[in-house]
Design a binder for these strands. Structure first.
Ligand SMILES: [Mn+2]
Ligand SMILES: [Mn+2]
Ligand SMILES: [Mn+2]
Ligand SMILES: [Mn+2]
Lengths: 217, 217
DNA sequence: TTCACAATTTAGATAAGTCTAAATTTTTTA
DNA sequence: TAAAAAATTTAGACTTATCTAAATTGTGAA
């Protein structure tokens, strides 16, 4: 099928092109922790395979077949994360790196059976929607806390950054999935935000944290 | 840790060195479906890493650390096969190739939790013993049908060859795990064997098949 | 004990994926 | 709008894992 490296590039391009138009070489290099020159090499290869639209110096977008592969990898990633948390009792901050490997297990039938085994879950442990076996899924209607206005409320439903350090920080602040929060104050100086959790405790989080914490309204 | 290729070589050497002394370059090449020259290159690499004992032209054996890695890969392989059959309802003849990929998922904690989740199974779907988290397991006391004498009985408990085609052939002949069989006749000419299954139906199998079908006495 | 043949290793290539350094193109800024 | 800066690509190299063809080593039959 496709190599592990190709799959990682396609997934990265997919994530980076959310909303925006073309994705740049440097964006991909940053996301994959590699060098721009390596990215250029791979872009030529993916373009040859008709998985991306690529013109020198102009950035890239996925073709329909590239998109299909990317979504299939994302489906695998999220289903394995769900499995690790729900069946093997890992914490949500432990599973991302393992899923990064498991998403490359090739069998489609395996992943469809895993989906059924877990009774077709709709969201992964970080609140992201799980594509079904046809690749369909609602794009998440979640907003970052940083997009809320004063006195707005929401229910914590996901995260953008899935690093252990961020998830563990949230855990410590009791900002976990399902909790309802209200914006008590927005500090103009640094865009940091004071939140009230479940009408009780207040916490003060940075702009950076508010950007990466997602809520349903 | 180790690359996928290295892991496959170590596992292969482990399987080939059962009982025998040193494993030859050509044996490994045949098992991995590659060329002898490629094997030589890899043997040098594994010897540099102190995972095998290697002297030019003399074949190889695993060092204790090489053995430890091989057993860990085999543990993963067999636990994933068990998972695929018991939890995802695959047939025993469908799981080997998927497990060949899954055995390379690196996390040891993942596999230990999977082991617990399935309640520490002792044998994989082909009757092979599953090493525990310390790498301990009884070497299988199973004998090939070809080693039985006339009128000996046994219970079908495993297979050597795990290809789909052999497993499907056994299924069709009703020679499945758990069935008891008795040797009714051994044809001197071609060493083929006539078996009676569960004191009922008789089947006639080739020497090749008898070599690859394992029974407990 | 020699010699032919089988087994193994070496030599030299190739493909994938990556890197650094240099060249090129695009974009910004003055 | 021309120079400077930033982004991107190219050139050339390296690593891992493979291969074919040629050279070397080991061994068993005569
Ligand atoms: Mn993830
Ligand atoms: Mn990945
Ligand atoms: Mn197997
Ligand atoms: Mn394998």
């Amino acid at each position: 099928m496709n190599t592990l490296a190709e799959e990682n590039y396609l997934k990265s391009i997919y994530h980076l092109s959310m909303g925006d138009e073309n994705v740049s070489t440097n964006q991909i290099a940053a996301a994959l922790n590699t060098k721009a020159s390596s990215v250029t090499d791979m872009l030529k290869k993916l373009a040859d395979k008709a998985l991306i639209n690529y013109t020198r110096y102009q950035g890239v977008s996925l073709t329909p077949s590239g998109q299909k592969i990317a979504v299939s990898i994302i489906r695998k990633h999220r289903l394995w994360e769900y499995f690790l948390v729900e069946k093997l009792n890992f914490r949500w901050d432990q599973v991302h790196d393992m899923a990064e490997e498991m998403e490359h297990i090739s069998s489609e039938e395996l992943i469809d059976r895993l989906d059924k085994f877990m009774d077709y879950p709709q969201h992964d442990p970080h609140g992201e929607p799980i594509p079904d076996c046809n690749g369909n899924f609602k794009s998440s209607e979640l907003k970052p806390v940083s997009a809320l206005e004063l006195n707005n409320s929401g229910v914590i439903s996901g995260v953008r950054d899935q690093t252990s350090s961020f998830l563990q920080y949230l855990e410590k602040q009791e900002l976990t999935i399902g909790k309802s929060i209200k914006v008590m104050e927005i500090i103009a100086f640094d865009h940091s935000v004071v939140l009230q959790i479940e009408n009780k405790k207040e916490v003060h989080i940075s702009r950076e944290a508010a950007n990466n914490l997602l809520v349903a309204l």
